[in-house]
Write a protein that binds this DNA or RNA. Structure first.
Length: 497
RNA sequence: GGCGCAUUCGUCUAGUGGUCUAGGACGCUGGCCUCUCACGCCGGUAACACGGGUUCGACUCCCGUAUGCGCUACCA
């Protein structure tokens, strides 16, 4: 289907691009929804169009205002600004009603008084015979006379409105999947309005997309099978259908649709676990879309420039958090120290041991930030990696103690270091290094033999940035004290074991 | 069950009939760098679901099969 990829929008089409993101507020903004929103947003940006937001809350029972807020918050975090006012389907009930009845008037739809139970029974019966039940095959209520319908209505008999389907196959072209044909026998006279006057999804979506003058419907693959119904509705109304693009779904590592058991699915959880919005935007866009070359890191502007529907994949993609982590690390490294500190501050403030006083010393914190930059994958790691800068270690990592503090000789080494460091006037990076180099030379020891025990003494662990820089920031006083404490500990430890 | 959609390394993907002994990235892994970790660099690992066609030639086109997903609701 090579012609699909070559499809280029005409100038007229480009001018009038209007897309929408239409979540139903039955949950938080999840990864899949966020990506659909991103694709829509990018498409609108790319074509200088409008990106609209619509809340599909016709299922009153499952929808909630708090979920609406959560979705909006998620979009804001990703920096996906929408144009115009948010449309809420729950406020347009009369509009749908009007359109549904207009269809009844024009004979394109009809009222059906059959009860749910009645239909369920028929379905069961057909199933027993291994057949599919189709309302269109009996169309009981279609043969009702006007008088009969009126009588039922007077008696307040509840009814739904069904679309009367024509006897023709439905055909349309999807921008991602190409030509799709569905035989009309597969479709039924589906319900467009419920007894309570609420529209079904199909009606609401078509009416809204028409009213909002949506030019391109970009939505999840799960709607591909629904599209023929929508096309039929457009036809019944006599409206021109928009273009459709069905984007693949996102799956969990087990290849099943992403759900709670896969861990984090709500976009907000990625913020709390320390991912940058720009990372998530980049990553989600790349999940199911490719520019065609080997690039992986795209700025927002680059994404807008490069994004094209023709690069969207057909197959669903598995969400791999390992790669997300890697990408987040890349974004963190690309930040300036100042930017990184700003982004990390909310995470630092969550720790009660990080006081305002600590944060007030910008110069000091900024130096620490610089040292951590290429070691961070997620912002949440920031506080846990810097504790030793603000308080002496309370305990020492067990494995490291066994490895680096296994006999008396380390005490000698540490004390030697201590006494020579004490003599340094200008306690900074290079002078500290010079001292330590001379000590190792003198003792004829490998550098690691000295640095690792020292690191354990100063940080309590076996991992840290460059010791010289750490020492400089710690200051002479702290360094000497910590070495002393460590020596006491080592001696005691050796006696006990 | 019927119909629709999909199927390239474990994962994200490149690939539009010969350039493919299938490229990149994450992961994993060997090494270098090195005071540890990380970063960086060099290398390795690993894939065209299967079977038939069409063609001089198929990852690429067609048809089946398998598998997965979706629709088949008074959910969206």
């Amino acid at each position: 289907m090579s012609h699909i990829k070559e499809s280029v929008m005409s100038a007229a089409e480009i001018k009038s691009v209007r897309v929408r993101f239409a979540p139903s507020p039955t949950g938080f903004l999840h990864i899949g929804g966020a990506r659909t929103a991103i694709f829509n947003w990018l498409f609108a940006q790319k074509h200088n169009g409008k990106f609209l937001l619509r809340i599909e809350d016709t299922d009153a029972e499952r929808s909630g205002q708090d979920m609406v807020e959560a979705i909006i918050e998620g979009l804001r975090w990703l920096n996906l600004d929408w144009d115009e006012e948010i449309v809420s389907q729950s406020r347009r009930l009369e509009v749908y009603k009007k359109h549904a009845h207009a269809l009844v008037q024009s004979g394109k739809a009809y009222k059906c008084f059959c009860s749910k139970e009645e239909l369920a029974a028929k379905r069961d019966e057909a199933a027993k015979k291994k057949q599919d039940y189709r309302y269109r095959n009996d169309r009981k209520c279609l043969s009702l006379t006007t008088g009969e319908v009126e009588e039922l209505e007077v008696r307040n008999q509840p009814y739904v409105i069904r679309l009367k389907l024509p006897e023709q196959p439905v055909q349309f072209t999807d921008m991602i999947h190409g030509n799709i044909t569905v035989h009309h026998k597969q479709l039924d006279d589906f319900i467009i309005m419920r007894p309570d006057g609420y529209p079904t999804y199909h009606l609401a979506v078509v009416v809204d997309d028409y009213d909002m003058q949506i030019s391109h419907v970009i939505r999840g693959d799960d709607h591909l099978s629904n599209t023929p119904k929508h096309i039929l509705l457009y036809k019944a109304f006599g409206w021109q259908p928009p273009q459709f693009a069905h984007v693949p779904l996102i799956l969990g590592m087990d290849k099943h649709r992403l759900s709670k058991r896969h861990g984090a699915t709500a976009i907000g959880e990625y913020e709390t676990s320390g991912y940058l919005a720009e990372t998530v935007l980049n990553f989600l866009t790349l999940l199911g879309w490719s520019s065609g070359d080997d690039r992986e890191i795209f700025s927002r502007a680059e994404l807008v420039k490069e994004f094209d529907i023709s690069g969207v994949a057909k197959k669903s993609a598995v969400f791999d958090e390992k790669k997300l982590e890697w990408m987040n690390g890349q974004y963190i490294m690309a930040l300036t120290d100042q930017e990184l500190l700003e982004k990390a501050t909310p995470y630092l403030k969550k720790q009660d041991w990080i006081t305002e006083e600590i944060l007030a010393d910008q110069k000091f914190v900024l130096k620490i930030t610089a040292m951590l930059k290429q070691r961070l994958k997620r912002l949440t790691e920031f506080p846990e990696m810097i504790a030793y800068f603000f308080s002496a270690p309370e305990r020492y990592e067990e494995k490291a103690v066994k490895k680096f503090w296994k006999d008396e000789s380390v005490i000698d080494i540490l004390q030697k270091i201590s006494s020579q460091l004490a003599a340094i006037k200008d306690f900074e990076n290079t002078s500290i290094e010079a001292v330590l180099r001379s000590i190792t030379d003198e003792l004829e020891l490998g550098f690691g033999k000295v640095m690792n025990p020292l690191r354990l003494a100063l940080t309590g662990g076996s991992v840290s940035p460059s010791m010289f820089e750490v020492m400089e920031l710690l200051g002479k006083q702290n360094v000497l004290e910590r070495i002393e404490t460590a020596c006491v500990y080592i001696r005691k430890n050796l006696v006990e074991n």
